[in-house]
Structure formats: C-alpha cells, structure tokens
Design a protein around this nucleic acid. Structure first.
Lengths: 209, 209
DNA sequence: AAAAAAGGATGATATATATCAATGTACTTC
DNA sequence: GAAGTACATTGATATATATCATCCTTTTTT
C-alpha cells in the first residue's frame, strides 16, 4: 500500500494551492490534517529555532505528509514548505481515526508506513553523526538522484543552503564539497541543476563518510 | 496506555533471563518478537559496524522494546544489550498482529506510541547535529536523571563509552566534558555513580549547546 | 593475593568544520 | 535597462573535536 491509498481515505478532502516558498504547516502549530501532494514538491524539515534546520525529506506527488503529533498531542514537529508551486489536498485527521477504527488493515499499513520512516530516521541519525562533510553531501546527492528525481541528471529548486540543511553543515562547507566533487570529475553542480558523472565514486564516498 | 498494556497482550509469552552484557537482539537479525522487560535495564542502540554506536534509549522494567522492522521486513535495525542481569518476556509479533486486527483501539495506541518515539528521534537528530559536546553531555545526564533513574543522584551500569555513545562523541571527549562539569561544580562524576549539583546550569548548557 | 584486563584519564597534535568578511553572479523588482 | 536582492563562492582564521599514545585506577580472573 502506498501513500496513494491513504489519499483515497478522504472523500470530502479540500484542495489548496501553495506558491513557491509558502509554508504549508509550521513546527509547533496545531495539526488538524494530513497533507497529500497532487502536484509540486515540498521540503519537510526540523527547525531548531536558529535557522539551523535539518531537511529530512523532499515530498513528491502522491505522497503524504503527516507528522508524529497524530494521536499524541496534535502538534506539528516538522515544517513543510513548498519548493515550487504545489497543489495539495488536506485530509482531516478525524477521518483518519475513523478509518482506523473501522478498517484494521488500514491501521497496519499506517504502522508499516511509520516504521519505514523510522528506518530512514535511523539512517539519518547514523549518517549525520558519524560521517564527515563529503560523505554527507554524497549521500544527499544520491538521495536526490535515486529517490526524488529518479535520474542522475536533475533540475531542482533546492539551493545550496537546502543541500547544507540536508547534510547538517553550513552553506559554505556544502559549497566547498560540491566544488571539490566537480574538480574531481564526480559531478557537475550548476544552479538548480546537477549531473552525477561518477556514481560509483559517489556511493563509495557516501559509504565511508 | 503504557507499555504495560501492550505487555498484557501476550497470555502465552515466554520469559528469558539475560546476563550482564548479553545481546538480546542484534541489528540485521530477524525480528520475531517484541521484548518487554520485567527486571533490569537494557541499552538500545544503533550500530554502524565500526564501534561508533548511537545509544538511543535505556529501557527499564515495564517497557517494551520493539523496532521498525515490524510489518516492514521483520529485521532488526537496533541492537539491545542487557546492562545488568535482566528478565524479559518475549511477545510474538504474530500475536501483536492478531490483536491489531481484532482491537482497533490497540492499533491506535500503537501508532501513538510510535509517534512518541518519533518525536524523541527528532529531538535526537537536532541535538546530535547542532549541539556541541557540552550541550550533548548535559542532555544525556538530564535524560538519565529525569527519564531513567528519576533522581539527580543515581548509580548506573553505564560506562564512559556508553555516555559517549549517547552523545555522539568519542570516549575521551566525554571524559573531558565530565571533568569540566566537575571542576565547575555542576556534577560529581564517579564510576557508575553521578550526582547533579546544579541542575539549572545543566539545563542551560543543554539548551544552548 | 597476584596477575590480567578493562576502564578512566591526560597530554599533545592533527584534522575537520564553523565563522566571518568580502566579492562575484544570478535573479527579481521597478 | 537599472537597481536591488538573493545566492554562490572564496579566503583567512578560529574553534571544536578526533586521534594517538601513554599512564593510572578499578575490576575481574586466576
């Protein structure tokens, strides 16, 4: 079961359009809906209140953006911002609860889905704490190529600070690593445009950190 | 609902005794059971295959140790090791699934429980990536005092490497910070014995990093 | 009780990354 | 098209932490 199936939950959902840069929901806010994306991309990140964010995920069409406040305290712990013009639909959490009560398979899919995310958070924790800048940038580029754009050549609205936020480092450090990767013929890094030239090398750098 | 309620799920569970240092389950292994603790304590950590672990949690009596492989691929992504002689009971994941199918409220509690963990993982990610050594050690000491031992003076089987693993740093760095905290009169750090003298100061250090 | 092993601690040095300031380029607004 | 703003980049320096080796203390084993 994919996010698409969760999307089908809500027969009376409402559509909302967000412009580039607009915040869909904000950390510490009240969580009333899950958001599913119809068109566009969204960056989902942890804020620490000091402009030192951790970008956890780029959400794409047919994906759901929820959050761990569900059933806990109904607060947002993540911030979601439209990277480009994005069409979303809002799914009321009360509807989610209703379906959970009447459809046990749905709940099991939800738990499974949460666990898949937890696995990724574990990878993130290990990566961000143990790898150095080259390993982390390599991992971020591979994530974008393999899981977001499905292409070793991709255009993206992400800027250098976004890449830095994905890799737990400052913008200047991220730029230096990208420049070194270019100098070594591993990638081409343009403005909002990347091409991976030596994927094997990138994977190796990503593994060893 | 607490872990205790989850524990009651299994009427035909089996008890297992682990000696100090024994591994209850190992990352990459097959997950067949959830573990609930009856007596003793367990450290639950992420392994990266290079003795650079991240210790996520100290599990206590009446707490459950599960893992995100449940319903995904049934593999372990965490390692659990007994910190002292520990009595556990094993709850078969098939039984968990059965209860989920027949008891929607149970599933909702499970989702809630997982979300509580996700919130803590988010805090961990922000803490370990943005704070410096003093902030991280302060946070680890507060976690032990407030969430594990419920006392500002506690004895613990944890050693310096364990504290370092909780704080994503090397053993030597952890020792240096503990020594500085002692020199500043913030704590007393003995072997397997800690006393927090200035909790406000520790909190402040923990917040600012 | 003695020996061995494990853990705590220290000092010196190397390395990685942040910080800061400044410049150049690209994009947006008027 | 010009002005203003945002972003990318660079260089120099400061700071934080890892690494390495060694020694001391505590705990475990014989």
């Amino acid at each position: 079961m994919t996010d698409e199936q969760l999307t089908k939950v809500d027969t009376n959902r409402r559509e909302v359009l967000f412009k580039t840069g607009e915040t869909i929901f904000k950390s510490s806010g009240i969580q009333t809906h899950f958001i599913c994306i119809q068109r566009g991309t969204v960056k989902v990140y942890l804020e620490d209140g000091k402009d030192k964010n951790i970008l956890l995920r780029i959400a794409k069409p047919n994906e759901i953006i929820s959050g761990p406040g569900f059933l806990v305290d109904h607060r947002h712990y993540l911030t979601a911002t439209a990277l480009e013009e994005t069409t979303t639909c809002f799914v009321n959490v009360e509807d989610i609860k209703e379906v959970m009560r009447s459809n046990p398979e749905f709940s099991m899919e939800l738990v499974k889905h949460q666990n898949e995310k937890i696995i990724r958070y574990f990878e993130k924790i290990l990566s961000l704490t143990h790898k150095q800048t080259h390993g982390k940038i390599a991992e971020s580029l591979l994530y974008l190529a393999d899981h977001v754009y499905n292409n070793d050549f991709f255009e993206t609205p992400l800027n250098r600070k976004d890449l830095a936020d994905m890799s737990a480092m400052t913008k200047e450090s991220a730029i230096r690593v990208l420049k070194e990767f270019e100098a070594e013929g591993i990638i081409i890094a343009g403005n909002h445009r990347f091409k991976i030239l030596n994927k094997e090398m990138l994977r190796r750098i990503s593994r060893t950190g």
